[in-house]
Nucleic acid binder design. Structure first.
Length: 128
DNA sequence: ATTCTTACA
DNA sequence: TGTAAGCA
């Protein structure tokens, strides 16, 4: 069950393929990288090479955006995820931790406060 | 042919 | 975000 995960991290896809797989524009994909949401490798010619995990990450970002979350909110989710993973390596996770983590992520995903979107720093500003 | 960076009628 | 320009 380790073999498949390894291949999933292999950066073998050029941006052109990623564009077809995600329906995102090169502009968007590169912008998300600038925001630290994805970190593709680079080949000898300085061209970005993506892994299957990168593609999944991009599709996830696309969904979050479609659900009204902004870059800051997505950054928060991933930052929180790595923080959780880091803490999990030091101390065994308790049931309470799991509940808190799930709650935080759902909140960041905008699934709980559909009332005052404009008040949240983690939502897109609907330019009416 | 593709991708990269930079800049902005 | 789109798009044009000039390279690699």
């Amino acid at each position: 069950m380790k073999e498949k995960e390894l291949r999933r991290t292999l950066a073998v896809l050029p941006i052109g393929t990623v564009i077809k797989l995600t329906d995102l524009t090169a502009r968007q994909i590169r912008y998300y990288e600038e925001q630290g949401l994805v970190t593709p490798k680079r080949n000898k010619g300085n061209q970005r090479m993506y892994s299957l995990n990168d593609v999944d990450r991009l599709l996830e970002i696309k969904d979050y955006l479609a659900d009204g979350m902004n870059i800051a909110g997505i950054k928060y989710v991933y930052q929180q995820q790595q923080a959780d993973q880091q803490a999990q390596k030091q101390r065994p996770v308790t049931d309470d931790d799991v509940r808190r983590i799930l709650h935080d992520e759902l909140l960041a995903a905008g699934g709980l406060d559909h009332h005052d979107q404009r008040a949240s720093l983690y939502h897109q500003n609907p330019k009416k």
